[in-house]
């Protein structure tokens, strides 16, 4: 892989919940290339979601953290992240357009006509043209996650943190949404947490596998091709390699 500019690097990090006497992550190193997708794979409970939640600023009071986080191109993480979870987290009392513009409710900036226009464009972009006034309850799971994607795009933050955003979808919808996300988040620095090796291989420019307890991360070399990748023999081989490494934790 050619040398890439680093967006976020985490060096020798450890993370421990205050009510626990053992760290869940230790000696953890991660380099997220700027404007690229980085995936973290690991079995359930290995600490990958905790790491993402820490980076999203959702764990600050409950955990002990040590280690360095170096940022490039941004001052702080706090104001520069957009968060996408496994659930679409659409507010059921707001229609699609209001959900897409949800972040404006917490901002000093008022929603301008230009913003509004952009929101409509983003809804079109994710393939939901004409659904701006629909309530979330009337949408399918895939459509709802598309709205969540539009909401993330509307936030327009340089860093996107994704916690298994496609795992609750059926195979075809997941495949289509992965392609769409890769396309529309092309210039963002994305951290994707997943337990699906295929998804990680398809979408990431850098891939880490979290292993052990407390968990550390090992990096995996990926083909130097653009994402979303077509799943070929080489990726299938890599997938087997990932499963072999992950299996160690299941013994």
């Amino acid at each position: 892989m050619p040398k890439q500019k680093v967006g976020i690097s985490i060096c020798n990090a450890s993370l421990q919940y205050q009510d626990s006497n053992q760290a869940i992550i230790e000696h953890f190193n991660l380099r997220m290339p700027l404007g690229k997708w980085t995936a973290i794979l690991g079995k359930s409970g290995c600490g990958k979601t905790s790491l993402l939640r820490y980076l999203a600023g959702l764990l600050n009071e409950n955990v002990l953290w040590s280690g360095d986080i170096t940022l490039h191109g941004i001052e702080t993480l706090q104001d520069n992240i957009a968060y996408m979870a496994q659930q679409d987290l659409l507010m059921p009392w707001l229609n699609v357009i209001d959900n897409v513009c949800f972040a404006f409710k917490f901002s000093d900036r008022r929603l301008s006509d230009t913003d509004n226009k952009r929101a409509f464009q983003l809804i079109d972009l994710v393939g939901l043209g004409g659904q701006a006034l629909t309530m979330p309850a009337q949408l399918s799971g895939g459509m709802r996650q598309r709205v969540a994607l539009a909401r993330t795009l509307m936030q327009d933050k340089p860093v996107v943190l994704m916690d298994e955003p496609f795992s609750a979808l059926d195979a075809v919808t997941r495949h289509r949404l992965q392609g769409l996300a890769a396309q529309v988040l092309a210039d963002k620095t994305v951290l994707l947490i997943t337990h699906d090796p295929q998804e990680a291989l398809r979408l990431s420019d850098a891939l880490y596998i979290m292993q052990g307890s407390p968990a550390g991360a090992i990096s995996l070399t990926l083909p130097n091709t653009a994402i979303p990748r077509v799943f070929d023999a080489q990726l299938a081989k890599l997938q087997q390699q990932i499963i072999d490494s992950l299996e160690v934790d299941y013994v």
Partner: peptide, 27 residues
């Protein structure tokens, strides 16, 4: 309130009062 709603709003920079007004109360 579903914790995911609160998490999302917090990552968007919501204050305690904004969380109450825009998330907790409607939910």
């Amino acid at each position: 309130t579903p914790s995911g709603y609160l998490d999302l709003a917090k990552t968007m920079g919501a204050s305690k009062w904004q969380l109450l007004k825009h998330v907790r109360l409607p939910a």
